[in-house]
Design a protein around this nucleic acid. Sequence first.
DNA 1: CAGTTTCGCTACGGTTGCGTAGCGAAAGGG
DNA 2: CCCTTTCGCTACGCAACCGTAGCGAAACTG
Lengths: 210, 210
Amino acid sequence: MSSQRTERIDPRCERSQQRALAAAVELLREDGLPGLTFEAVAARSGVAKTTLYRHFTDRAALHLAAIESVGPTAVMPATDDLRADLVEFISRLDDSLHHSDFGAILPSAVDGAERSDEMADLARVVAGQRRRMLEARLGEGQRSGVLESDADLDLVVSQLVGPLFYRRFFSRQEHDAAFVPALVDQVLQPLLVGVHQELKFARVGRVSRR
Amino acid sequence: MSSQRTERIDPRCERSQQRALAAAVELLREDGLPGLTFEAVAARSGVAKTTLYRHFTDRAALHLAAIESVGPTAVMPATDDLRADLVEFISRLDDSLHHSDFGAILPSAVDGAERSDEMADLARVVAGQRRRMLEARLGEGQRSGVLESDADLDLVVSQLVGPLFYRRFFSRQEHDAAFVPALVDQVLQPLLVGVHQELKFARVGRVSRR
DNA sequence: CAGTTTCGCTACGGTTGCGTAGCGAAAGGG
DNA sequence: CCCTTTCGCTACGCAACCGTAGCGAAACTG
């Protein structure tokens, strides 16, 4: 009701929740979703079980909050070199998938999203932030005349990040630092202003038969 | 020791295991990994709990067997049209990700693979089969002169299937039937024989600054 | 048909996790 | 400084799941 700016948060609540979520993340890393229990979080964090129930209604809420707490804080570089910005951004994403808490507990979020609407929404929000950053930078490339203006940016974004998620979680293939630049180049090539017409001709004439 | 052809399998074992795994798949769909318990499988399948313990040492083994039981049986079309074959293959993959048991319980396998070596190996095997089929068909394209012979097929495979997995499980974006053809075209364009030189020139000259 | 194997069933003790209640101590806020 | 809130702690009943044992019935094998 009182429309104050900050919601007047008791520092004790803040501290308890942070400790609890840190422990929850550890447990998710070690044992996955089945390992995330109120008792285990209480034992590891030092926060009493009764206190946990005061903050989180059930396991799903705890899981959701834990996932939110490790949400990536990525920023898009902003030089005048589109390729360099994309390589940098995608490389950092690849690194976080392999070496951060975010990458480690993402599988539990994926599994949870299959049956929890809230978790599914969170997944869409997180991915949406990343997508909007990439689309914004690609849009600049279009306005500055580097990229074709009719490129399907939604498709391009999936092409840029999809292979990284696939290799990290599904095919579980390793790759070196040269992979991301190669991927970015491969994706960008058909979209560059100046080779568009030849490509369209080549595609229709050589591959499709319609 | 006796190197007979077939391992002499009692039909009763076969039947029990099939029923158990079918129930396990259902449970994984409904409640994810935490829902996969010996008691629940016994109750749903009609197979006695003691019998389950005779076949599966622990929950991980049961989970692994359940994942194996829904392994996809994909085949690569073999016409003389590379693009059409790829569109068909990728479309069927996309469909199975959204509408099959395989797609439904894949998240639990991904989560399990983070902590189970056997599950991780299984993921690599399943993805490897798919990758080899795609690489074989792309290799034909190279030998028949449609694709550049120096294309990085491993990268291409990730480009073809990565976006589908990403949109299904991470960004959770819907897309219509036109998505797959658009993706295949976009990925194939830089690899077509005949436009390679112009593309290489365009890339070095316009995007990269090295 | 005789011998072996697997089955389903019941029962059991032990462990873990759930969710709540009651309490005094400690820390925040006006 | 007093009042309120939140804290940690202990304890509890309840349910679920684990993993094993013993048994007779049923099914497969040769």
